[in-house]
């Protein structure tokens, strides 16, 4: 880790004014569970850290007059899990948060940080850059050890998977993001926040260096069955190998419309149009869930070591649908 300056503003306006025009100038610090590791590994080296934890308006979970839920960017994963409203209506979010199995990370890690955390690609974390190239510019992932890499959207130059477990659940629930910058606040569909980088100086999400995420707005999930299923090898401290979040708008026994979002399989949370289109108008059954899973991975392609993830993603979709059908019970 290199030396840095530390600023602790109390308003979002101050926070934004303390940020700079690049990550080298300054970076926002929330729980620090990812950022400090990146700094220790010398992957990022901001000259200033702007601590957000004293910005009170970024905290808290509350219902808005229109029935939607407002989650402050600084809400911790544990606060999310303990919240009665979330528990009541947003099973898929609970499932996703519950999968983050380290009490320490749940206690410190924030929802905003979970969405803005950087990929865990081991080439990136070893200093080969987000697009993981060797000194001759050759991509290391496709022929390297890509057992945890992308099976969808992996035509390059990005091969990593988006690490956020909350993002697929939130996208499936139709969440929006509030971003605050020097030009004021903008609202964005969370789905549009993420984009695979096409060059080395792009990030995997759309946030300028002097902008911060302030809150997440989740529409009421009334009438939507929702669930997340993660394939995890271990119960303790580990990442999902593949995950799926689904939200199904029900009309009686029939699925009126569906959102199906896969996690940990592509450089972005992966919305499966194929599975969604298929599910509309269907009655939930094992067979229907299985077909949806198969359709969700229809365009998947294996690199040298990650073919097994196609099967895992298929199963995750199937099981998420069945879990949602059963009322999202864990």
């Amino acid at each position: 880790m290199r030396g840095f300056e530390y600023a602790s503003p109390t308003t979002k306006e101050q926070a934004v004014s303390l940020l700079g025009s690049s990550d080298d100038d300054a970076m926002a610090l929330a729980g620090g569970t990812d950022l400090l590791s990146l700094m220790k590994d010398d992957i990022v080296a901001p000259r200033r850290l702007v601590n957000l934890k004293d910005v009170a308006e970024l905290r808290g979970i509350r219902l808005l007059p229109d029935g939607s839920l407002r989650i402050g960017a600084l809400v911790t994963v544990q606060e999310l899990l303990d919240n009665a409203i979330v528990k009541r209506g947003y099973a898929s979010l609970i499932h996703a948060a519950d999968g983050i199995t380290s009490p320490q990370i749940r206690a410190m890690g924030t929802v905003g940080g979970d969405l803005c955390q950087r990929p865990r690609c081991w080439y990136y974390r070893a200093g080969f850059g987000l697009l993981a190239k060797d000194k001759d510019g050759a991509a290391l992932v496709p022929e390297g050890d890509n057992r945890y890499h992308a099976i969808l959207g992996n035509t390059g130059p990005a091969y990593f998977v988006n690490p956020s477990s909350l993002a697929p659940a939130l996208i499936a629930l139709g969440a929006k993001l509030h971003i605050f910058g020097s030009g004021g606040q903008v609202e964005m569909n969370l789905e549009n926040f993420f984009a695979a980088p096409t060059s080395a100086n792009e990030k995997e999400y759309r946030l300028k260096p002097n902008e911060i995420v302030t809150e997440i707005i989740v529409p009421s999930a009334g009438g939507w069955k929702n669930a997340t299923y993660e394939v995890r090898q271990k119960e303790s401290l580990d990442w999902p190998l593949a995950a799926a979040s689904v939200a199904l708008k029900m009309s009686g026994k029939t699925i009126e419309s569906a959102r199906v979002v896969l996690g940990h399989v592509a450089p972005v949370p992966w919305r499966s149009g194929e599975a969604q289109a298929y599910l509309a108008g269907k009655t939930i059954s094992e067979q229907v869930a299985e077909t949806a899973g198969t359709l969700a991975v229809a365009r998947a392609s294996a690199m040298s070591h990650n073919g097994y993830k196609i099967q895992l993603a298929r199963v995750a979709v199937k099981r998420a649908i069945m879990k949602a059908a059963q009322g999202g019970q864990r």
Binding site: D134, K234, E235, D238
Partner: peptide
Amino acid sequence: LYEEKIMDAKTGKMLNPNMEFYKLAGIGD
């Protein structure tokens, strides 16, 4: 079930020199 010193053929580096991907069992496992 979990442990493996994962070496990258091309770069010669260990890819999992951390407690995140050098996986060990927790109590639940």
